[in-house]
Design a binder for these strands. Structure first.
Lengths: 343, 343
DNA sequence: CTGTAAGAATATTTGTAAATATAATCGGGG
DNA sequence: CCCCGATTATATTTACAAATATTCTTACAG
């Protein structure tokens, strides 16, 4: 049998409630008493039993973490790293994370167990998912925070990548290197992230007063994989007037771009500079290593936990929308353009 | 407030205990009573509250799932898919999975919370991890099942890939295609999986009575990444007498092998056949698509749950060692050798 | 009259919450 | 300068939380 609060109380010569109060940092307890209790807790290596705590306090101590299974098993560990960030933060706040994936095509009755059983105090949902889902969950009054997704109509708190600003920074970097003829490749605008990144691209060019050639924007691939970047770049390089730099909407496409450029006989970064977005692992190993925009995944996960926590305890019901900044990571795929083009 | 067992009992006109008995399929309950109760449960959409259940039954309803963080954030979602298989199975058995990663260099006192708090009924640990860890956990008498790892000295249940048999099958396939000059590339033998796969390789050749050239076995790379496969294959192809087929210890290395072979001016599979191991996602998209050995990851995860479950309930303490079979996936990187070599 | 099936009543699990109790401190009147 | 009620600080008692586990009762079969 395990050690219970009773035994701690007995050994410390106080009542059970006192031990409980110490455990939960509540009310006023004399410093000496608190220390005595803590010492006994330590000696006995006592850990309060979760189920009893939860039953009494009518809280669960759990947060549900939902990912679409598609995202979860994707090659790039994007959402797993977000989860890791959340898990780490949850530890500090003494919460457990229950991870579940949901399938894209979900049927009405297959809500995650923890929702049906009321076994969580809040939900974090990462990545795009079936909206039916979300509307369903909206019905259960439980705090929800979304990560990297922002559905129409629902006013929920969410943690988003500052894609527009990141796109702007990427292009500003290229501009600072002297490039003015800058191309963009990205899948279709149905991906909200892509759309935002492109918006940043346009914004930076406008701000710099640089004319940009519509032929240099290729967005007719539907996906955003390596292969799509490859084909998009092929199209781009077919233009008579070639850009000197290329902003790819993500690193996968940038990787494809490197290949296409090399096949076209271009050296990188000598003949064309390439910048990506995401800072996925392989960018360190591409040839040349890819300059890109780093997305702080662990931080996003941690942020979501903090938000959920606030919602659970302070009952703050304000909707927050956090934009997590993106940082430039310079490697070797971009070069300064010289002689500087006349302006 | 939620619906409780009390309300179900009231509405069904029975006692709380009866409802509990129905819920847990215990003792003798008349069929008509059981049905009545189940009907009411359904009507009220009642779900027993986890914390109360756990407190009363002194079980936690949780299983801890541990992965080294390194493995977890690895590009290839190998262990995430195993987790998914476990999670799915756990749902059926009404268990929750608590996922935590541990760092490779772990310090004595940073055991996962759920262990310290005694908040799990069993542990699944996936992938290789610091042995200090495992010895530490061995001290806490809690059922443990390992996946894809088998530490020295400890007699624990585990779910392993049948690497030797898979290697044997791979080579047998090549033999069946008429190849006799077969090469092997794989990182160092410090990886137990690699060692086993190589053992299968040797075994198949011996069984077939085929002589094999030691020059065709390259195992001096320390890692097993794409780049290592690339270099290993370069070495291999430098041999005077080149093999006609190549067994790579995993798909990453096989991918590197494809590249190295093409650079050496060889067509695949016309000039050399290549077979990999793991059936990771990208093998579908390589050029040509890679023939490989499929590892049933989800199944491995599910198996581990079943084993833990048995240990928890039947207190079976026998040590089991499950070898999950591996299946050949034929794509386009191997061809029949003709004319068949004389034997 | 006894044994068992079927179900009810009661005890138990381990904590937190709320209501009380007790000790310590304080300001002002005697 | 001490005593007294009020106030605050500190700690205890009592009452749950919602299930399962255990014991007890009843009715009926043999």
């Amino acid at each position: 049998m395990n050690i219970t609060i009773k035994e701690v109380a007995l050994k410390a010569g106080v009542s059970q409630s006192t031990v409980s109060l110490v455990l939960n940092n509540k009310q006023s307890i004399k410093k000496s008493t608190r220390e005595k209790v803590l010492q006994v807790i330590n000696e006995l290596d006592y850990h309060p039993q979760r189920s009893a705590r939860n039953l009494a306090s009518q809280r669960t101590g759990n947060i549900g973490f939902i990912i679409s299974d598609e995202h979860f098993t994707r090659a790039e560990p994007f959402y797993t790293r977000i989860f890791l960030g959340s898990e780490f933060e949850a530890r500090h706040l003494d919460y457990y994370l229950l991870l579940t994936s949901v399938s894209k095509n979900f049927s009405r009755k297959e809500l995650p167990r923890f929702l049906k059983e009321g076994n969580i105090d809040g939900i974090i949902a990462a990545g795009s998912m079936n909206d039916k889902w979300l509307y369903e969950m909206a019905g259960m009054k439980i705090p929800i925070v979304l990560i990297d997704y922002f559905p129409p109509r629902l006013k929920w708190s969410c943690v988003l990548i500052d894609n527009a600003e990141g796109g702007r920074d990427a292009v500003n970097y290229l501009l600072a290197l002297g490039h003015e003829k800058i191309g963009f490749i990205g899948g279709s605008f149905t991906h909200p992230s892509i759309k935002e990144r492109h918006r940043g691209f346009t914004l930076a060019l406008e701000e710099a007063g640089v004319n940009h050639n519509p032929e240099w924007v290729i967005t007719d691939e539907t996906e955003t994989r390596v292969i799509d970047g490859y084909y998009a770049t092929k199209k781009l390089l077919a233009a008579k007037d070639r850009p000197t730099a290329l902003f790819a909407a993500n690193d996968a496409m940038a990787t494809g771009a490197l290949k296409a450029a090399r096949e076209a006989g271009l050296e990188i970064p000598d003949d064309i500079s390439v910048i990506g977005f995401d800072n996925i692992d392989v960018t360190k190993y591409t040839n040349p290593p890819l300059t890109t925009m780093n997305v702080r995944m662990e931080e996003m996960g941690a942020f979501a936990i903090k938000m959920i926590f606030d919602r659970i305890y302070q009952k703050k019901s304000v909707q927050e929308k956090i934009l997590v900044p993106v940082d430039l990571v310079t490697r070797e795929s971009c070069r300064r353009l010289s002689p500087a083009p006349q302006r």
